[in-house]
């Protein structure tokens, strides 16, 4: 376990380095001078030139890059000029909001997707199975932007039941908090729900054909236990993989969903920072998200071990 963690942390370094390179150069490819964008259309040419100088934009590109790397190594995220506050604060303010949205979407996906997948597998080739399979096929290919807009239009504009923008606060009561959360969570949960249902269905079908399921039945166990204990635990490994991927995706900030519902999370932060050409914010937010990705993957690998005792994390074969 220790060796495993050590190896994984070492692997983190080249990953982050590559991410840093990519995001640095992509942001530089955006059209428009950041100084000009930030100062607005009224700014004079001299102001813009002076501001560019102050931002270090006149330095050669490689100098800018190494300065940026140097700061990263020192864990110095720097300041955001457009928000006028330290970027670390900015991230810490937004990240919990993204976590809330991601967790609630994941909960919905697990609560609906997993039982649906189990049911479809148990009733293979029945109407129920076809129904669930069709729905999950539609679900995984759902355009989230469209779905989000439809949800907002119907439930908040037409029916007026739920707010369609912003985040509620617990200070205004539980309902204020939940009501703001519902629509974006549903939009965000759609694809993972469908994906979980599909994964669980196919891995359950595979698992149910194993001998140990026949053994479980031959012992006189109830069918409920045979399915939900003996088969399910074996079927969880592939689910864990997609769950980890989905969760790190969600934590990276659901850019579309957060934009549609003006949810003040990481996704919206990046979008706004790009609009304002606030490169440092974009770069450091993306780096932060990359770290989260790696950490989640690490947790998933440790969970594999919990689900499947055969996996030995310290051997080279393990964890795959």
């Amino acid at each position: 376990m220790k060796r495993f963690l050590f190896r994984r942390i070492l692997q983190l370094i080249p990953t982050l380095f590559i991410v840093a390179i990519i995001v640095f150069f992509i942001t530089r490819m955006l059209p428009g001078n950041p100084a000009a964008v930030m100062l607005g259309p009224q700014a004079s040419a001299e102001d813009i030139a002076a501001y560019s100088e102050q931002l270090g934009l006149n330095e050669p590109l490689h100098r800018q890059f190494f300065d940026y790397l140097g700061n990263l190594v020192k864990f110095d995220f720097g300041n955001s000029l457009s928000y006028n506050q330290p970027i670390a604060d900015l991230i810490m303010e937004r990240f919990p909001n993204t976590v809330i949205l991601a967790i609630s979407a994941l909960i919905i996906a697990v609560i609906i997707g997993v039982p649906a997948g189990i049911l479809a597998a148990k009733k293979q080739n029945t109407f129920l199975d076809y129904f669930i399979t069709t729905f999950s096929l539609v679900g995984v290919s759902m355009p989230i932007f469209w779905l989000g807009v439809m949800l907002a239009l119907y439930f908040s504009v037409n029916l007026g039941w739920l707010p369609s923008t912003g985040m509620g606060s617990l200070d205004n009561g539980l309902w204020d908090f939940l009501s703001h959360l519902i629509l974006p969570s549903i939009a965000l949960a759609t694809i993972p729900t469908a994906q979980f249902a599909r994964i669980i269905r196919s891995s359950m079908l595979e698992t149910i054909s194993h001998d140990y399921i026949k053994t479980a039945r031959s012992k006189g166990l109830r069918e409920f236990i045979v399915i939900n204990k003996h088969a399910l635990k074996n079927a969880l490994t592939p689910l864990l993989t997609v769950m980890g991927l989905q969760f790190s995706n969600l934590l990276g900030g659901a850019v579309l969903t957060e934009t549609i519902f003006s949810w003040p999370g990481m996704g919206l932060l990046i979008v706004n920072a790009i609009e304002k050409r606030d490169f440092v914010v974009v770069q450091n937010t993306v780096i932060f998200i990359a770290v989260i990705y790696v950490v989640i993957n690490l947790i998933v690998d440790v969970l594999y071990k919990v689900v499947n005792p055969k996996i030995n994390l310290d051997s080279d074969k393990g964890g795959a």
Partner: peptide
Amino acid sequence: FQDPSTSLNPVF
């Protein structure tokens, strides 16, 4: 059954 390596559940 025939094959004890598949007739026991590996995860319990």
